[in-house]
C-alpha cells in the first residue's frame, strides 16, 4: 500500500521559511497571497494491505519519528 504523509507546522508556530516564500512571491508581483506555510510530504510504500492497519502503522511512525509533535501536525493519505 502506498501512502503520503503531510507534515505541517502547528498553528501558532512561527514559520520563517513560509514568511520568506511569502515575501519572495510579493517581490515577484504575485499579489493577494495572504499567508504561506511550508511543510513536507513523505511518500511511503508499505507491505500492509489492510487500510485500517496501514493507517495505524503510519500513525505510529509519525508519532515516533516522521513528525515532531511538539511543533508539527501530520496528515495521512492512503493511495492504495
Amino acid at each position: 500500500m502506498k501512502a503520503k504523509v503531510y507534515i505541517t507546522l502547528k498553528n501558532g508556530v512561527l514559520d520563517p521559511q513560509g514568511k520568506a516564500i511569502e515575501h519572495a512571491l510579493g517581490a515577484l508581483d504575485f499579489g493577494g497571497v495572504n499567508e504561506v506555510r511550508q511543510g513536507k510530504m513523505i511518500e511511503l510504500d508499505i507491505a500492509e494491505s489492510d487500510e485500517a492497519k496501514a493507517k495505524s502503522q503510519i500513525e505510529a511512525m509519525c508519532e515516533k519519528l516522521l513528525a515532531n509533535t511538539v511543533i508539527e501536525n501530520y496528515a495521512i493519505e492512503l493511495i492504495g
Binding site: 508556530v13 512561527l14 520563517p16 521559511q17 520568506a20 515532531n68 511538539v70 511543533i71
Partner: peptide
C-alpha cells in the same frame, strides 16, 4: 536531547533563516 524528549520543546530554523 529535545528529539529524545529528555528536554522539552524543539529547536527550529533561526527566525531570520
Amino acid at each position: 536531547l529535545t528529539e529524545t524528549h529528555l528536554l522539552p520543546g524543539a529547536l527550529m530554523r533561526n527566525a531570520h533563516l
